[in-house]
Design a protein around this nucleic acid. Sequence first.
DNA 1: TTGTAAGCGTTATCAG
DNA 2: CTGATAACGCTTACAA
Lengths: 370, 370
Amino acid sequence: MDEPRKRAGRGRAPAAVGRTGRPRQAEVARLAGVSQATVSLVLAGKKQGAAISEETRQKVLDAAGSLGYVPDPAARRLAAARNGLLGVFSFTATFPTDVQHSYYPFLVGVEQEAAAQGYDLVLFTGSSRGGAGATGPQALNRARLADGCLLLGRHAPVDELRRLVDDGFPVVHLGRRDEPEGLAWVGADYVSASREVVHRLAALGHRRIILVREDDDAPASTDREQGFLEGVEAAGLPGGHAAVFRCADPERELGPERLRQWVAEGVTAFVAEETDSGAAWRALSKAARDAGLHCPGDISLALLGSPPPDLADGPQPTGFDIPRAQLGAAAVRLLATLVAGEDAPDPLVACTFRPGASTGPPPKALGDIA
Amino acid sequence: MDEPRKRAGRGRAPAAVGRTGRPRQAEVARLAGVSQATVSLVLAGKKQGAAISEETRQKVLDAAGSLGYVPDPAARRLAAARNGLLGVFSFTATFPTDVQHSYYPFLVGVEQEAAAQGYDLVLFTGSSRGGAGATGPQALNRARLADGCLLLGRHAPVDELRRLVDDGFPVVHLGRRDEPEGLAWVGADYVSASREVVHRLAALGHRRIILVREDDDAPASTDREQGFLEGVEAAGLPGGHAAVFRCADPERELGPERLRQWVAEGVTAFVAEETDSGAAWRALSKAARDAGLHCPGDISLALLGSPPPDLADGPQPTGFDIPRAQLGAAAVRLLATLVAGEDAPDPLVACTFRPGASTGPPPKALGDIA
DNA sequence: TTGTAAGCGTTATCAG
DNA sequence: CTGATAACGCTTACAA
């Protein structure tokens, strides 16, 4: 009666060691002279309700140590629905080819915070073609190996994503995202940051400020405009939509003449939205140069974001920086709370104001006339 | 008697849908009116022994499709010990996601070949600190989520690695590696490539060739020296260890005087080992310049490898290139055969000879005198 | 050709 | 405080 269980369907004799040749909790238990369940409990190391005698505890720990026991992450995940792993999914074409678009700065924060939260990371790419289904309807499915996953780019197939979200699998998108519904995300607080920039300009004495933005309805654009408008209103400046210059092609539509005209009308400061291309800021700077308007002597220019890499070595534009590492960290924090089944915290991360050298008080003459 | 099984220990009522809220094979089976095992068989899509009627097959496929069934990778791995995933482990600070990163060229090949073999990839790093054990004795353990894993860099802890290897877990190291014993690896065939370079020099008419190498006993160095010596012998040149100049600090020990002396003794060609630092090649080129020896007019120089990035735009040195992408691909192929339990193929990948512009026939006068 | 059932290694429940 | 025991979702040997 030593072997109450019937033999396995597979026909193997019950060996002292598993199929994998690696010690299982059962072996540890045998060596420690306790039940396998006890091993599990001890190894789980639950602080609360320390319901295990120090003696057994040590026996188990010793046994595990001497056997070199390591838990099987797959079994862990299957049984407990958690294995201490977080997935990071980047749906770039292959391993990211574009240096500019590298997620590196985010990943730094992601890794740090994951470690701090006691998670390990697993990176998936959506790249593989013809693989087990990486391009097919199962690309995201690999994510289920982990307790939750982070999405890094907007190329994830929405349907699959919806699937994941609907199943209640914890997913966090890095960057604001509205689809599919219910998808959690973290993003930079462009509204507050933009408002702050306007506030600073107003504090310097500027009364008329114009926002130059591209013709794009991405949340990143909309948020900046909203923040700008809030700032304008808060400062009691003449505002409304008249203060927003929206153009499809800044390079073409924003010339020196236009700029001079605005200045003549009493505008002393300009604010450009930051986009991938950096077109708005580039056009604005160029127009100012071409118009012979010195900055910050004649006019003040600010950028709602960070300067494009190719302009990085010029004089720092006043504006704000997106704390990429912090964003990554915030994403992990959010994901961790979702995994733990807790409520989601504020998804917004504050940007940091960058004083820069492109703003100053408005010129006396012009400023006062207005 | 509809429910022969006792209720779950966990106390949940057996729901129509699993804990995860996502359809399992059981649901598919119910919908298709077949057994769960049949679903598994159909979905496995085994060609051989097509022991399933086309009708059932379709029923199952339809059911699975309409339910949006996706297999659970963890369960798959647990039950079958394979889930179509290959792990890639790099013990770098962060994910080697950046093109800049030195692993990138390898990863390109890894990715392609993995796809070709029907595998998906999962990337791990050993970076995380304080994670569930990424730095601890379990960093490598995550790898067990996949069917096998690739190691990229020599920072993997040997003990853990030995563990993995001893357990019979398929591991392939990218780059030659002797420890722990039994570890599979793929590497570039430096011996053949170096021999080829010497062969070419000999064919040009060079009779005395010297190898400049650093004082390092890495296999990469040793292999090159071996290939060099083989080449020297094969060409019937005066060789032996006298032809090898081994120095700890090439910059310092390899000056223009030294070079001139060798040339005076009849040496017409020099071969430098490639290392991380590129010190040997750098020193050699500089010494030649300083000595006023024109290359390839006065002497021929060759490099056993590729030029360091900062010299990449200069004139191409004669030598060979390491086919990084192919190395990555070969690693995946090897790993796949290990996973399949087959025998390992040749671990060496051939390098490609690069003609370059730093070699030519030896100068008439000197060559003939010697 | 299909269904039955064991078991992969772990967690978690519940009775002793 | 400990030990059976069910279950996680799947694969697979074997019986029907």
